[in-house]
Design a protein around this nucleic acid. Sequence first.
DNA 1: CAGCTGTATCGTTTATTGACGGTCAACGGA
DNA 2: TCCGTTGACCGTCAATAAACGATACAGCTG
Lengths: 115, 115
Amino acid sequence: MTPRTCSPAPPLDPALDPDEELARFASALGHPARVRILRFLLEREECFAGAIVEHIPLAQSTVSQHLKVLREAGLVRGEVDGLHVCYCADRVRLRKIGDLVNALTPGPTEPAPAS
Amino acid sequence: MTPRTCSPAPPLDPALDPDEELARFASALGHPARVRILRFLLEREECFAGAIVEHIPLAQSTVSQHLKVLREAGLVRGEVDGLHVCYCADRVRLRKIGDLVNALTPGPTEPAPAS
DNA sequence: CAGCTGTATCGTTTATTGACGGTCAACGGA
DNA sequence: TCCGTTGACCGTCAATAAACGATACAGCTG
């Protein structure tokens, strides 16, 4: 069976200059609870919202808000599955953030932006 | 002459759990003006504060605030050089952020945390 | 259909952030 | 010594974010 992975590709705002884009992602990661949620989702490949709420010592509504922020940044996707909502971290998007950060400091591990 | 590189190694708060640490860094990167400042510093290897203020369409005091945030996150160092303050981006710290983000998504380019 | 359950959203409160002008300390030059 | 320049810091204001309880809503289940 498929391990309940979320839909493959949400759109991404194309009209952002790189600084704004990076700032947007970083901003979404800029709260410990959100990092924690993200890490939790990454550990478990997928899970429904209730599990997250149980894992995080915050009110359900607060967790939902954080999930919304993560969703809007595209770091997380959620899709309704009957009664539950199944959330997944978007690894591709996360990779992209790492790339954006690494691109700031061209160095030994990052050959060159090149053409 | 030395190219005005800043001092080598400021301390780093050791007692932070990884989530908080990442959130802290991300939070510092979470504003377009700060990303822009950082990029500007990275382009120029070093420069004094006035140049940054000229480059960013914000009041001097605002830029100074942003520099403070970047300084407190350890992304930037500034040292007084007579009348000026010489700012440098901390490439090592920036690398570390990239690593922290990439470590979230162990994948093809990131062999494994291993033992 | 009625009720329960899992989530999202609303409205409120408090805390934090962003931007600004003003000011102050440090320094260098006249 | 006096002045101009540089940049940090302070106080203020407005805007945004974080947290919560309450409520609304959608979809099962009886």
